[in-house]
């Protein structure tokens, strides 16, 4: 479903003004329209998107998720200062349990687990966000092209997507990563190759719905090219659901990366990596601290991104927002 957005009143395309401005009518039933708030915002001449994000994050889940992510972002930024020891230095006795010397213990090579968990955030978080952005971009473009042009182009792109969907994600990622060789770069490529179809499918269905909208048809009648129509008329109105999907996928990307690292197909040692650390710990259950703390790090980050994704979805989908509102009022 398409979602006419605030740009219709503020954007350069005068045709946008032809859409319902109060957020009601058919637009109210579409995700991305927040009835009432959006209308007020438009009435006050304030771009609606500036209010949406805070609204979305104003839920308890959103606040908790945002706070956790903020903490991890700060950890990633300041890891070199926060780490009590060099995460690569084999400077301590092996397999020391958590204690005053090493707060989270040491691993099988005598490295400080706390320092490694904190340092791994510098790898995991940016890479996960990068992977999601790249797959979102690639999947959305391909899906939009398929949905807009239809016919042969649609068939080719979507059958390709079906082909990727036919395999379990982690298995396909493993195969690709194994073929390319271990390493963070190759793991990113592997995850990118297996995750774009989700975005392509969503983008395709949204674009198919939007391309018959009056404002798109009007633009074509005025002679707008297909790329311009896609980029200017359609893209702003299909972006919200994709953004929600992307947020929810960050956690999934982290888990897939951890899975690949667990199988020695991700980050190359000695780079600290949460998945690889869990893998090391699994081989030594009695040294429970090796796997537990990176496992908790994965859990908190994935959970936080899911909280934010859920909150965004609730806020951007008016039906869900209404239901949530009724339940909480």
């Amino acid at each position: 479903m398409s979602a006419p957005r605030e740009t219709r009143t503020t954007g350069p395309n005068p045709l946008h003004g032809s859409q319902p401005a109060d957020g009601t009518a058919d637009g109210a039933a579409l995700p991305g329209n927040a009835p009432g708030a959006g209308a007020d915002a438009v009435a006050r001449g304030i771009p609606r998107w500036r209010l949406r994000v805070p609204t979305a994050l104003r839920t308890p889940l959103g606040i908790v998720g945002g706070a956790i992510i903020a903490v991890w972002v700060l950890i990633a930024l300041f890891a070199p200062i926060l780490c009590p020891a060099d995460p690569l230095a084999q400077a301590f006795p092996r397999l020391q349990p958590p204690g005053p010397g090493n707060l989270l213990g040491t691993d099988e090579l005598g490295r400080d687990v706390l320092s490694r968990v904190l340092s791994a955030a510098r790898t995991t978080l940016p890479v996960a966000v990068l992977v999601v952005l790249a797959s979102m971009l690639a999947g959305s473009i391909l899906g939009a092209v398929a949905g807009y042009f239809g016919k042969f182009v649609d068939e080719v792109i979507m059958r390709l997507a079906d082909l990727v969907f036919a395999f379990p994600t982690i298995i396909l990622a493993m195969v690709i990563a194994a073929a390319l060789g271990p390493g963070l770069k190759n793991a990113v490529v592997a995850i990118l190759l297996v995750s774009w179809p989700s975005y392509a499918r969503v983008a395709r269905s949204l674009v198919m719905s939007a391309r018959s909208s009056e404002y798109v048809v009007a633009g074509r009648l005025l002679g707008f090219s297909a790329p311009r129509s896609l980029a200017v008329d359609i893209a702003p109105n299909v972006a919200s659901p994709l953004l929600v999907l992307g947020t929810l996928s960050v956690g999934e990307a982290i888990l897939t990366m951890a899975g690949l690292s667990f199988l020695s197909l991700g980050a190359v040692p000695p780079t600290p990596d949460w998945g690889a650390m869990v893998s090391e710990g699994v081989a030594n259950f009695s040294a429970w601290w090796i796997a537990l703390f990176p496992g908790l790090a994965i859990l908190t980050v994935v959970m936080a991104f899911n909280f934010i994704g859920d909150s965004l979805r609730d806020a951007l989908d008016p039906r869900t927002a209404r239901t949530v509102g009724e339940q909480t009022s």
Binding site: L88, E108, L109, P269, P270
Partner: peptide
């Protein structure tokens, strides 16, 4: 893997 990391260090 551990041996390689040890030798690297």
């Amino acid at each position: 893997s551990q041996l390689a990391e040890t030798l690297q260090s």
